[in-house]
Amino acid sequence: MTEIDFIDRTFVNFRDHPFSDGQGHGFRWVDLKAFRFPQDSQDPDLLTAVVAHEQFRDDYAGGGVDPDGSRHGPYWLHAVKPDEYQSVSKVETALVLEEWANQYGCLPDSLEDAL
């Protein structure tokens, strides 16, 4: 299996930004985890390595990463298959993030900048 190294985490909590109604945060966040991987890696190898990595074992229920955990968010790890993922462009990715982030209305400028 391809070896990858976890190098950094960026956590953006919507609650940390001033929504005019005080509720627009919708209990949402973005948790970005960055990995270093060999230059000769192939996409399927990378997905397999990410799904197998302990940083993927975070149920986002407040306990953080559990190296022996069995969940990723609400998903059972045994049901997460790398071949179920599909490639998307940077433009498509940005559009999905923007649509999701703005689902309850406009974002504060500080949150726009953070995202």
Rank of each mutant, 00 (worst) to 15 (best):
W100S: 10
K90G: 14
I4P: 09
L32N: 04
D43T: 14
S70Q: 07
R9H: 13
R36Q: 02
L111P: 07
E54M: 06
S87E: 13
S89W: 03
F35M: 01
G24T: 04
L95H: 12
I7N: 07
H17L: 04
A94G: 14
E92M: 06
L95V: 02
K81P: 00
S89F: 06
S41F: 00
P108I: 13
V91I: 14
L97T: 08
F37N: 06
P82K: 00
E54H: 08
H25W: 12
F14C: 04
P38H: 12
N13G: 06
W29I: 10
Y75I: 00
V88E: 07
E54N: 07
P108Q: 08
A49E: 02
Y75A: 06
E92Y: 09
D66I: 11
D43F: 04
E98P: 01
F11I: 10
H78Y: 13
K90T: 15
D5P: 07
R57N: 05
A49S: 00
V96K: 10
P38G: 12
D8S: 00
E112Q: 15
A94M: 12
L77P: 04
D45L: 07
Y60G: 06
A94F: 07
C106S: 13
G64C: 00
V65K: 10
Y104D: 13
R9G: 12
S87V: 13
D68P: 04
R71H: 14
L97H: 05
R36M: 10
D5E: 09
S87F: 05
H78F: 13
Y104M: 11
S20E: 13
D59H: 02
Y104S: 14
I7P: 04
D83C: 09
W29H: 03
R9Q: 10
A34G: 01
T2Q: 04
H72G: 12
N13Q: 13
S20C: 05
H78W: 08
V51E: 11
D21Q: 06
F27L: 06
Q86T: 12
H17R: 05
I7S: 13
F19C: 08
W76H: 11
P67H: 11
P44H: 01
A114C: 10
